[in-house]
Structures are given as C-alpha cells and as structure tokens.
Design a protein around this nucleic acid. Structure first.
Lengths: 335, 335
DNA sequence: TGCCTAAATGTTAACGTTCACATATGGTGC
DNA sequence: GCACCATATGTGAACGTTAACATTTAGGCA
C-alpha cells in the first residue's frame, strides 16, 4: 500500500505553466493575478485534486485558525451544551476546534493536555472548568497563548479571562421567585460542592434567603443525578417537606418530584419545585418544571469573542451572563 | 505586542551544546543517547520552555495523530453522546480530535467541511450522519483518507466503513417486549423520517408487528421533541389510545406520558409506553420509563478501532451494535 | 520613441521538524 | 597497536507553504 505523495503547489504550478507562488496567490485571493491565469490554475487544482497543506502553511504563518478546548468530558448537560455552543461560535469565526477531554482533572493531566494543545499551535484555549480541581490546576500553569475559562472570575487568578453564567444570581432568582409567591421556607438541594456552579447556586440561595429574612432551612447535598434526587426526595418526605424546594438542577428536581408524587404530595399544590438548566423535556415533566435557563448559545459566542479579542491583544476581561427565569407549572403560592 | 518567536530545536541544541538532531532524538526516545546528554537537553528544554512544533513535524512525517469528526451539530441526545464517546476512545488511542459541525448538511457544506479537514491532514474522518441528506452528500465524495460513518451500512455505498446501532432491532425489541406482555395493538410515534434512525426504528416496528401477526395500527409521525410528543399524545387521547405505545425516543415518550396523565389515563395501567435512548432522568419519569439503551461508549471505541484499522490498511467493515432493553415501570400487561 | 509606473509573475529564502547518511568516539579481540 | 564494531553524535537535505524581494510586461504620457 505505497501511499503516494499528494500533489503540492509545485505540481499544480507545473501543470498550469506558472510558478508555485502564483498558485499561492490564487489560493489566497491576491488581487494581482490575471483572471485568465487564475482560471488556468483553478483548472489544474481541480484536475489534480490538489489541497492546500495547512501544516506547511501554519509553519510559516504561525497561524492555525485552531482553538483548543478542554472539557472535563462529563456527559452532563451544562458542560456538553457549552461545548456545542463554543463549537458553533468558533466555526462562525472561521476557527476549527481541537477538542480534548480530561476525565479526572488532576494538575498533571491538565498540564499534559495543555501542553499537547500548545504543541498543536492553537491560537487560544478555552477551558470548561466546572470543578474546583480544574481551577487549582490552572493556577500553576504558564501559558503562551490567551486562555478563556468558563468559570467564575472570583475563582480564577486575575490574569485569566473568564466568561461565566451567574450562578449566584441563579440561586437568588430561584429564591426570589418562590418568595414572591409567598414561600417562607425554601429548601435547597445542592449539587456536589466541588463544582463551582453548585457552590454559586448555594451561595445565592443562602444570601437571598437571608436578605429576605426567610426561615433558615438546613442544606441538603446531592449529586447532579435524578436518581440521587429521588433518594433525597424520599428522605425529605420522611423528614417532612418544606413548602418550596430549589433543586440545583432539573435532574434533581425530576427525581424529587417523583418522590413527592409517590408520597401522594402534589406539585405545586402541596410543594413548589424549581430547577436549573431548562433541559430538553423539562417542559413536559409532570408537572412542567419551572426552572432557570442559561444562555448557552450566547455564552459560546461570548467565549469565542473574548478569546479572539485576547488573541488580538485585548486585556483580561470577565464577562458574566444573566440567567433567566422560566415559569412553568411546578411553582405556585403555598397552600 | 511584538510576539517573540518561540524557541525551536536549534535554540535548545545551542544551549545544551549539542546538535538539533540530538534534541530530536531525546524527544523521540531514541535509544542511543547518553543519559548525561539527555539530561542536559532536558534541562535546556525546561529552561527555555521549549515545545515541539507539531506543524513542522506533521510536514515531514505526514502524521498528525488527528482524527476529524463531522457532526450535524444538533444538541440532540444521540449525536451528542456519540461525540463524547468518540472523543474518549480517540484520546485513549493517542489521537486528537478536530471537530467540525455542520448545521444544514447540504452536499456543498459537507464538501467544504471535508475539504477543510483533509487540508488539516487528518489521518481519518468520522462522520456522525443521522440524516439522509448527510448520506447523500457522502456518496459523491472522493476521499484520500479512511472514513467511518456512524450510519446503517445499507444506506451507505459499499466502499465506506460503517458502525451502527441496530435501529431495526431496536424497533423489533420494543415490539417484542410489548407483545410478550400481551399487547396486540402497538402504536408507533416515529421521529422525523429524514433521519435514518427514525426510519430504522419504524421499519423494525412494522416488520415485527407483521411477523407476530399483531393488529396493524397507523403510523404517527413526530419530531424528536418532548413538546411535539405531548401534542401527539393529546391527539391520541382524542382519537382513542391503543394499549401500547412505542415512542421513537424518550423525549417523545415523556411528552406522551404527560398527555396521558392529564387525560386521566394511567401508565402502565391503562397504556404501556416504551421509549428509546435511556436519557438521563428516564429512570425518574413518572412512571420510570421502560426504554431501549444504546451502547454509546462501546460504539465510540468501535468507531475508533475501525478507523485505526482502516488507516493501517484494513478492508471496509460494517459493525452493528445490539441495543439493550431496559425494563422499568411504564410497561405492563394490558388491562 | 522612450521613460515611468503599476500590474503580473518569478526567485529565493525562510519556517522547525525528521530522515538518511556521514562522522566521531570508545571499547573489544587479536 | 590496529582493525573492527557498536554506540553516540553531527550534517545536510527534504517537507509544502508564505514572505520578501526581483523581474518582466503592458500601458500611459511627454
């Protein structure tokens, strides 16, 4: 299987009867090429099935039009949605993505990955860093290209740009919505607290409850899964349910609602439930779930915009996107 | 901001007092380098913060350790899960992914994208092609590197390798499960029929119903969304519900179940419902959804394995992965 | 005509690796 | 001491592109 060498500019040039540089000019839309010459070159390109070698190009231009993305590779809704949004935005800006996932985000693994991306001459790096561990790993890393991290600015060293969804405000929004309906006891089922998102939502819940003078309710910890949500819900049923529950994401809310349903409690008649994420299907839960929607598409565009700005020499920036309340039928006035 | 040239092998070599080739040998773990020399080189590398330039390396070796992936970029569960699985498998095999999404998979867009990936010297290409249109576009494309398509082998030209989840068997499995419970009238709510997955499931439903001699039931078409599932469910309630419903995915099933619930019909007491995908949360639907699980992780590994084999000269192959029934509580014997 | 300018094209040298080959270096056996 | 070999290192030429500069060509105007 002797793989034959693919045609290069020189082959095209020879066939078209011009110099390789003229071919280069045609490819780069240089103005001063005679239409007739251009046609001849294009013809030769088509005939040979020529394709520009981007490695060679990158070597001399130092531009790759590639952005590296590191995610923690979880199949969870948030990180995944973020990735899709970033991909889309990058493509629109003419960039290709080099994707890399890290299972366990140890500092060593992160460094290896960053190293690999840098070797690829990526022009910038996006890091989706929902866990504390990732952030820790980043602190020690010195990087020659701009980095934008999807994480709370407060968690990151000052010299790194961030774009974040306002998790604290998310918590506040949930509490405010429930409080406005008249609830005075709002329980919170948090996500795993090594996730900054979970901490932010928790923080928002706590501070807004305090600000509104609501009755304090002990925190309940969970992971992000609907299964665990169900277990927590069952515990809650046994221990006595508050009038309102703020679940850290829609999956937890889903599990909790099933636990309530099985216990004969009706949502929102007996208990109000609010989630976060607005996952596909949330509108068809029983009952349709009131939740807090995050603007992932806008976030993706913002991340890429920030990164491109940084590539062009802009300063560090920290952008925070506001969450949006989506009222459906799982929240109502307390009985 | 005069971006200074990053250090190259020559810089390292000079600092370590050796030739650039020795540096290369150290980097490539060549056996015949004196430990002492190696140390000196490593030291110089660390001091300069040197990183190998993969573009230059790719230029001469013609190897990039990169695999191109094209997805239709939908945020739907299947394609997305497939991507994550592929990424993971590729990483394990030491490959990086170059990701590209296509919104509207026209032949032109597909060709542009493939072109771009080939220019990047990817060593192979994976295409997640759930829609017919994508497949059409592929038929006309001549490609210099191996391609593996995630699609039914029957839909693809014979010279292209495929890995697929057995959608027909998925439909059969659903029908068989319901028939074994005693159902004689099994309705199917299909996905959009320009998706091959939807057609496969439909085909499995139809053929198995026929094989088992069940009463024919008219097909109901839907898209993949839970919202549309709900609408279809409402229609069904109005027109009269069968004893069992096979929804083409879990989202449709979710919407249908809500429609049934609101109409006072109980699942599975009055109607059995089965879905496909086993999405996160399906175990906590009301009631927990019986569904058909697809082995995405295994599929990802299989795709990469097939691709690597093809890169090493293996023949075209078509692998089909079997679906698995997950029985929960939304299916039962008919009343 | 002859000169000047702009447009069109060509020539040469990078870019940072690896490959193929050439050259030291040090030890072994006679 | 010398030929011989393996091990260790160095040299020069690719790879396919773009950048910088050089050259040719054509057209306008005095």
């Amino acid at each position: 299987m002797a793989r034959t060498r693919p045609p290069g500019m020189n082959d095209v040039a020879r066939l078209a009867g011009v110099s390789h540089q003229t071919v280069s000019r045609v490819l780069n839309d240089h103005p001063s090429v005679r239409p007739q010459t251009r046609d001849r070159v294009m013809e030769a390109i088509a005939e040979l099935g020529y394709r520009r070698n981007l490695a060679a190009r990158a070597l001399v231009t130092r531009r790759t039009a590639t952005i590296g993305v590191i995610t923690s590779g979880s199949a969870l809704f948030g990180p995944q949605r973020a990735f899709v949004a970033i991909e889309e935005a990058a493509r629109e800006a003419g960039y290709i993505l080099a994707a890399a996932t890290v299972k366990r985000p140890t500092p060593l693994a992160m460094n290896t990955l960053l190293d690999h991306l840098l070797s690829q001459n990526v022009e910038g790096i996006v890091i989706i860093a929902p866990q504390r561990e990732v952030i820790e790993a980043l602190k020690s890393f010195e990087c020659s290209v701009p980095v934008v991290v999807l994480a709370d600015a407060q968690e990151m060293p000052a010299h790194i740009s961030t774009v974040s969804l306002d998790q604290v405000e998310t918590g506040r929004l949930a509490v405010r919505h429930l409080a406005e309906l008249g609830h005075r006891e709002i329980a919170h089922i948090s996500g795993p607290l090594d996730w900054t998102d979970a901490r932010g939502r928790l923080e928002g819940w706590r501070s807004e409850c305090e600000a509104l003078g609501l009755n304090p309710v002990p925190l309940i910890q969970s992971d992000w899964s609907s299964e665990r949500g169900y277990e927590v819900g069952c515990d809650l049923v046994r221990a006595g349910v508050p009038t309102a529950i703020f679940a850290a994401n829609d999956m937890i809310a889903l599990g909790v609602m099933r636990a309530l349903y099985e216990a004969g409690l009706r949502v929102p008649h007996d208990v109000s439930v609010i989630g976060v994420d607005d996952v596909p299907g949330a509108s068809q839960f029983i009952p349709p779930l009131t939740t807090i929607h995050h603007q992932f598409a806008r976030m993706g565009r913002q991340i890429i915009a920030t990164l491109l700005a940084a590539i062009n020499g802009a300063d560090v920036s920290n952008v925070v996107l506001a969450p949006e309340l989506v009222v459906r039928r799982s929240t109502a006035e307390p009985r």
